[in-house]
Design a protein around this nucleic acid. Structure first.
Lengths: 142, 142
DNA sequence: CACGATTAAATCGTGCACAACTTAATTTTG
DNA sequence: CAAAATTAAGTTGTGCACGATTTAATCGTG
């Protein structure tokens, strides 16, 4: 295999690896909140933007109903969210936070701190990484 | 939430997103080989380094037996690999390529080309990304 | 207004990832 | 040498990700 071709593996595998490791950094921290990383992402969307449809959450997190429906059912079982069919358009399910769900935001406020600590990166390095990843995502989706 | 804390989400979510999208780039290409991305990684290890134990593959790919055992069984069902208990140490299962598995290497040789094309990145950009990711992985695991 | 197209969510099936545990073989050590 | 410790792989259970399909509601157009 040529060097150029080998390089692809040497980029994609570490990327796959890094994403897994970062989620593994979240795991023990989020365990205290009884959340997984994707569940945490849904909670962030709801904390920051309030009640919304399943498909709106899906658009923001790039997740389809096949992933979201069971995930949201688990958040509902934990009494963090409420799922309610829209009266006007019965196809739509609106997701809203319960009191318990809103309250969890405080407890979750220290999560990013802990992640930054384990990432061992400066604010500058984080910003650079954000830019690099953002550029690639833009280029892929162009 | 402070800007600094928000930055963590703005880095980790895009990273999680990018890793998913890159694997989604592989999906249709690898479908022609009837492989998933993790299966492809196992095949690469075997193509490049030959027969080895389950645990050696696991160390290289950072996957445990809970992930590898069923994955390897699927590769065996596809007649790409052979699983054989070591005669001397019966705990060890050695994985080796079948003729079919070795032959697949040729067909797979064009995969990185296609990925590079969809990533729309230059060799230079790829090398930079490799360095950035490598540095972070080193720092996390320090 | 009715019927075909579209939309939203749910469902089903496959496969990966990881934690926790089990099983069986081997190694260590008292 | 035998019991305890360790090791390798397998098993079980939970949850995510995604493709494909289904169901039910709504929309659009003739």
């Amino acid at each position: 295999m040529s060097d150029k071709l080998k390089l692809t593996n040497q980029v994609c595998f570490p990327l796959y690896q890094l994403a897994k490791e970062v989620i593994n950094l979240y795991r023990p921290i989020l365990k205290d909140l009884d959340l997984t990383y994707p569940q945490y992402l849904v909670m962030i969307v709801l904390w920051e933007e309030g009640r919304q449809n399943v498909s709106e959450i899906g658009t923001k997190l790039h997740l389809d109903s096949g992933t979201l429906t069971p995930l949201l059912k688990r958040l509902e079982q934990k009494k963090l969210i409420q799922r309610k069919r829209n009266q006007i358009d019965e196809r739509i399910v609106t997701i809203s936070l319960t009191g318990h769900g809103k309250k969890l935001r405080e407890k979750a406020s220290c999560v990013p701190d802990q992640i930054v600590a384990s990432l061992k990166m400066t604010t500058n390095e984080l910003q650079q990484l954000q830019n690099v990843i953002g550029n690639i995502l833009n280029q892929i989706n162009k």
